[in-house]
Design a protein around this nucleic acid. Structure first.
Lengths: 231, 231
DNA sequence: CCAGTTATTAACCCAGAGGTTAATTTGTCA
DNA sequence: TGACAAATTAACCTCTGGGTTAATAACTGG
């Protein structure tokens, strides 16, 4: 019907591939950075779009709205942490050594998962409103508790662990310093200086915390690492 | 120049008191709630204004802009926590008992300061950017370290404490579970249930954590609270 | 009681960010 | 090969929320 003299104002990109998976993953990666950096309210959809190789419309196409994107990000970081935890295997180790390794591994996993830490902080600011809606997250956390339960049972059966030792309490305790160490680094350093965050001092804190957990859980364990001054 | 027939569209409030201090305090109180609840980006100035007994313009009059208000809120909660800490006095107690009371008091202080906890979390999300600008906050934190230093020195001098015990490390440790216990309650409960947050179990956690710190710091201290199962 | 300053009110502005519309291209399967 | 669905693009819409303008009432000092 057109007379042939039609001039489109701007040429659309005339060629592109259909590649939903890649586009989705691209958006999710950028969004994870953005939400971890600025929180739910602070994150900017236009900015996320700009940093992807796709357009803003695709974010809404795949994730619905800002909250949908945030939820996807949240599930993503929880899932990737599970993968790391599942690599641990203490089945063959004696309980004391297993507990030692579990504490050290947890401490280190937190240090190397800053996005996870920040998103959990952000989620706590929102009273876990979005985590509650997740169907997969509760499952993810079961794994670590199962490992701890196994270690505790074996430790008690062998007469090595105190009888009051409880897996969930132990997890609370181990998480607390592992998490806090990363989550509150900024305010802690601002108030008290950077001394605890040198590599040497971090190693020392890890050793002391581990030793302390063992002293609490294991009958007769002497927390020897507390006997000598650090760096 | 007007012909005298001028009709103001709406009558202004024709009577009010000048009361800068009260107005400022009113704004600060409401703003503390709002920032603690929603973070810096999530907080809404119009909403803060609505909940005060004054107008939005006054917020800008007294605090300049949103960040200025946020900084004032931050300094406010730090200051009020210092007041609580300054009430503690361990000078007369023996070092072991002093340390026990300090741990318990810290644990409890965190539980009863939810606004402080949330604002510190929020500040960590911002990498302590606003705390760094504060001139009063570094001073506030000195007090707790001084108390711990005194206890540690006396404990070592009396041959009760391990020689490696360090005040700053101890503070890191005590803060970690005290802070985490409150800050991560939402996600922890979502993942593992509310069991740890009954009053009875909170008391147990406090006792176990305290006992564990003592076992780490004090030569020969047996962490007896870990020998029996909780609620 | 008047001039100048401080505190307060009401109304307004506008950039920016979340979200949408509509058209177009790519791929698929009968 | 052509209808249909899925994926993608560009342009647009709307309203919220941080910040401002301008006028005026309440004090204060001389």
């Amino acid at each position: 019907m057109d007379g042939g003299a039609e001039t489109p104002k701007k040429e659309r990109k005339t060629s592109w591939k259909k590649d939903p998976e890649t586009v989705r993953a691209d958006i999710l990666g950028v969004a994870t950075d953005e939400f971890a950096a600025h929180g739910l309210a602070g994150a900017n959809i236009n900015e996320i779009a700009r940093r992807t190789s796709t357009s803003k419309r695709m974010i809404y196409y795949y994730f619905g709205d800002k909250e949908g994107l945030y939820c996807a990000v949240l599930e993503g970081v929880y899932a990737s942490l599970r993968n790391a935890e599942d690599l641990l295997d203490f089945a063959g180790l004696d309980p004391v050594e297993a507990l030692r390794q579990l504490v050290e591994a947890t401490f280190e996993a937190h240090v190397t998962s800053p996005h996870f830490i920040r998103l959990v902080m952000i989620e706590n600011i929102h009273n876990a409103a979005y985590l509650r809606k997740s169907e997969i997250v509760p499952k993810l956390n079961r794994s670590i508790i199962e490992k701890l339960t196994d270690v505790c049972e074996r430790g008690k059966a062998m007469g090595l662990f105190r009888s009051g030792v409880d897996p969930l309490e132990l997890h609370w305790l181990i998480s607390s310093f592992s998490f806090y160490n990363v989550s509150n680094r900024a305010t802690f350093s601002t108030s008290f200086g950077e001394t605890l965050y040198t590599p040497a001092h971090q190693a020392l804190l890890k050793a002391r915390a581990t030793d302390m957990v063992l002293a609490a859980a294991v009958i007769g364990h002497e927390p020897a690492s507390w006997n000598t001054a650090g760096a």
